[in-house]
Design a protein around this nucleic acid. Structure first.
Ligand code: MN
Ligand code: MN
Ligand code: MN
Ligand code: MN
Lengths: 218, 218
DNA sequence: ACAAATTTTTAGTTTTGTCTAAATTTAATT
DNA sequence: AATTAAATTTAGACAAAACTAAAAATTTGT
């Protein structure tokens, strides 16, 4: 498997949100930042290799084999992200780019030893679940903060928008993964929220709330 | 810098044994397991990029810039080797292949954090010195065991032949990096040695002795 | 149902890195 | 010094992965 092939497999997996749906040529092109014609070419090749199902004009989906490949890549990507944060003191917004390279290193022993070193983590620094060696993982039970009802509380486990600017905003406002959050009140007018985070009461906009994931605790 | 370009730079560096000598097209081809014509093409490109000095029919050498690039690659390669052995329990003979991939990961922060995590090691698992961030390193003061005079002792710091079969032989015979070795006697007839390693007295052939490096201690 | 808009594919190029076969230069021998 | 051998480069071809422009299929709107 070449690096490029792997990135395509991963893109198809991600667009389908983990469930094995059929995705369009254009959506893959957009995700990968390439042209649709390039996608067509690659998808034909992947089809011949038995990694995807492809019918011209009808979209692509992963085969059993492709699915397994995607899970391995996601596993590697997220394990490396944990490594970078836990062992090398990287911050949220720095890990993705490097993990994008590290996920392509070919060594099953490396992946599994890393998993062990990190204590078999179940989620990555963005709150996304890490597939086990067998490809199993708990479907994330995370909810957007904007959809959490008043009175409920949870733990901050991830972001929807993982762009550097947003992550930097969170850093600046002292909102971090693992923080306990209680939804105290919601403004009907603009959807902004009053929340208690740690021991601080703060007020955040709807836009922020709809990009932060909580794992509901009660 | 592409992965392939980096591997060429490294090959030129290694053939020149770290000193900046001019090396032949053929030697690069052999080291890289490619054809001489491919080397010519690549060397032209590297020359245009200012990484090597190249005169047709006269061989290649690294420029200042190329030298620096080579040192960075060697640094990354060897740091990853230490990481694999120290943190992930890889053995001598397993690290090279994986490090060959990891050395190409682009992130200065990653390299330097790794260096810190490992406690700024000075040698890799094969006894080869690791360049510092600034590109400085102590020239190895290692000597082939076969050339150590009778009565002298040292610490096993590396191998000349780093092929898997040889490394496996050492494992099997309980000879490891860091072991203290005393040369007790030498057979004139076949050059074989009687050595004390740890608390064991053993007899090794000239062939083995000429592939093991010691750092002389007294 | 038909025309217009959109999506997707095909055809033809480009760049990178490799190869083979042939030509050229340099080195070694007589 | 001439010939032979070895090393190196050139020329031409190919596979991978991308692109642009044009053609074909599908979807949408009326
Ligand atoms: Mn990637
Ligand atoms: Mn992530
Ligand atoms: Mn390499
Ligand atoms: Mn090494």
């Amino acid at each position: 498997m070449t690096l490029s092939e792997e990135d395509y497999i991963k893109a198809i997996y991600h667009i389908g949100k983990g469930e094995n749906t059929t995705v369009s040529t254009n959506s893959v092109a957009e995700e990968m930042d390439t042209k649709p014609s390039s996608v067509t070419d690659m998808v034909k090749k992947l089809s011949e290799k038995g990694l995807v199902n492809y019918k011209p004009y009808k979209g692509v989906s992963l085969t059993e084999h492709g699915q397994k490949t995607a899970l391995t890549l996601v596993r590697k990507h997220r394990l490396w992200e944990v490594f970078l944060v836990e062992k090398l003191d990287f911050s949220w917004d720095e890990v993705h780019e490097v993990a994008e390279q590290l996920e392509h290193i070919k060594s099953e022993k490396l992946t599994d030893s890393l998993d062990k070193l990190l204590g078999y983590p179940e989620v990555d620094p963005h709150g996304d679940p890490i597939p086990s060696k067998k490809g199993e993982f708990k479907k994330a039970i995370k909810k957007l903060l904007s959809e959490v009802p008043i009175g409920k509380s949870g733990v901050c486990v991830g972001v929807k928008d993982s762009s550097a600017p947003f992550l930097k905003f969170l850093d600046k406002n002292n909102i971090a993964l693992g923080d306990a959050v209680l939804v105290m009140d919601k403004e009907e007018f603009d959807g902004s929220l009053h929340i208690r985070i740690g021991d601080r009461d703060i007020h955040i906009s709807q836009q922020i709330a709809s990009n932060l994931y909580l794992k509901i605790t009660e």
